[in-house]
Amino acid sequence: MTFWLPVWTLVQRDLIRFWREKARVVGYVGSPLIFWVLIGSGFGNLAFFFPGALVLTVMFSAVFSTMSLIEDRREGFLLSMLVSPAPRSSVVLGKILGSAALAWFQGLLFLCFVPLAGYAPGAAGVLEAAGIIFLTSFAFTVLGFLLAWQMDSTQGFHAVMNLVLLPLWLVSGSLFSMTGAHGWVRWLMRANPLSYSVAALRGALEQKAVAGMPAVSTSVAVTAAFAAVLFLASVVAANRKTVRSFA
């Protein structure tokens, strides 16, 4: 049994589905776009709020598209994947890469607005940003996958989204910078993996390191390490043959 054929199968499936439900793009790209325009214009600083809004798009898209796993598992497509001889790890990777590709695509769509934000990153900066957006998409998708794998209901998923993910985004340097933060919030920002995604993206667009944060390359490395650890955890979780995963 080849490893990559099932991976490609699942990615392809997500791409086809996405193409047939184009309305989703409006939701995931649209609302962060409105946030960005309103908050950015209100503070008179469209540039500052741009990277954070882009990361929010990616987060919405990645996390909500992995939510489909809950229904997929209960009945549907996942069942037949799990009784096929395809290796579990390739099923997991396929599912994650599919959702990550969609999140990435929507992040890139948001990136098209970069001239309006007043950045001029040049071709190299745009490529760098595209790479960082992919890593961030991947990390969020894996996080979504891990959550969805443990959960029985989509309600629980919304609760985690509101109680954990949105607050993480608030203290990621999206709304205020590390240097302007007070006391314990600053420590929270430093510990928040999301801060490094935002910092890397901001750094790529400005073509210089962000004040109070490590160099772009270090931020990228932290994001990559975060994604890798979560991915390993997902494979371990999916390999367990339990009553719950088939309930």
Binding site: T2, I16, R17, S80, P85
Partner: peptide, 26 residues
Amino acid sequence: VVFQSQSLDRKLTVAENLRAQGQLFG
């Protein structure tokens, strides 16, 4: 395996569902 609950992807065509299944079996 033919499940009682739907194991088809409703957003895909019949042929696409079959292709995905075949690829999972190599």
